[in-house]
Amino acid sequence: MNVSMMSQPSVTRKVVICNEQGLHARPAELFIRLANTFESDISVVKDGQRVDGKSMLEIFTLAAGKGTELSIEARGPDAQQAADALGKLVESGFADDTTSGDEE
């Protein structure tokens, strides 16, 4: 995180993982890919463990399964959009065009 970003807006969203697979493999890949489209720094926090939301390897180490509560923290010029988009992705059960999805 560079110094200029410290003064940037910061947005936190709490989400619960609802897909069966949790944040692994394909879902994690979708998450990273989306996160990397934003300029903001993204952190994901689980039970006090904070990892880089743009690093797949770090996301994996959370071992976040179904039912896990996560905080998505975005800091940067597009923090709001990033937090919203990533939060929505998780809450949708990572439903993209190929999965049937279980939206509420």
């Binding site: 394909r26 890949e29 890919r33 690093s55 797949m56 390897l57 770090e58």
Partner: peptide, 20 residues
């Protein structure tokens, strides 16, 4: 097909992982 190729997307993400 696409489904089987997906694993390579994951590999790519890991290879290009910025922490790594």
């Amino acid at each position: 097909g696409d489904e089987y190729a997906a694993i390579f997307d994951a590999h790519l993400q890991m290879l290009l992982d910025r922490r790594l």
